[in-house]
Design a protein around this nucleic acid. Structure first.
Lengths: 131, 131
DNA sequence: AAGGATATGCTAAAATTTTAGCATACGCAG
DNA sequence: CTGCGTATGCTAAAATTTTAGCATATCCTT
């Protein structure tokens, strides 16, 4: 990801790449429907073309449509994105992130999920205990 | 934050705003030192000027220097940023985020911190239990 | 004092991004 | 079949972003 770093993306490029990560892959029309204050169809197409030239996305033909997807895997991109947010806004504090997550998502977390979260922390802690 | 949404920021604008959130506030020279592949001093200055015109940052004089800071509070910005990452890359799954955090930071989390994380989850769960 | 480093005020040009539109093709409904 | 909607191929212009540089001022070191 040396030359595919997300801080290299321009405004529209970033909006588009975000949509592609969220959806997995998308047609021009789908991308257009998902970006804020969208330009015309051909503008979105041209932007996807530019992103492809730069190597950030690639397309495959699906019927008569092109389906675009990011070239960097989602798992890689998410790590990078999360790291960046933790560093920029949370002083690298895991606790602060988790606290913010709880705050943001508090009405949506089920009892089951809390249980799973506890288990996850516990198992990571044990992993560490073994080191 | 209606018109101060981060997906409105251009490439350099975003790089600069990120630095300001990371550092809290900064001079032109500090911003310049912190952004990737920096242009000259006057270019950075001009960008900060543009960001100020757009209302994303403001400055105060500190001796003969200007100190710039973001207009949107860090706590607000971090919530928005985290929400965006969770949605874009983690399908809104808190668990997946926490798992990724653990994975990214595993060698840096102390036993104490694991304890505090557990407590945090537990206390959030109890809060929810009361509802 | 002089010179160099570092700061702002101001302007404009270079570079990049964003946008639209024409031509053509294909699919579908009436 | 026709017409409309939707798709790509291709091009270029409009809009925005990015960059530099001149003039002036201030601070610090020699």
């Amino acid at each position: 990801m040396s030359n595919k770093h997300f801080n290299q993306l321009s405004r529209r490029e970033r909006q588009i790449v975000d949509v592609l990560y969220r959806e997995g892959e998308a047609t021009v029309a789908e991308v257009r429907a998902a970006i804020p204050d969208p330009p015309g169809y051909s503008a979105v197409r041209a932007l996807l073309g530019v992103l492809e030239e730069k190597g950030h996305v690639k397309h495959r033909r699906h019927g008569r449509q092109y389906l675009y997807r990011p070239t960097v895997s989602r798992s890689q991109a998410r790590r990078a994105a999360l790291k960046h947010v933790v560093r920029t806004f949370f002083d690298d504090s895991v606790e602060d992130v988790v606290a913010a997550l709880m705050s943001i998502k508090s009405t949506q977390i089920s009892a089951e999920e809390y249980k799973r979260l506890s288990k996850l922390i516990e198992s990571e802690r044990n992993k560490r205990g073994q080191r």
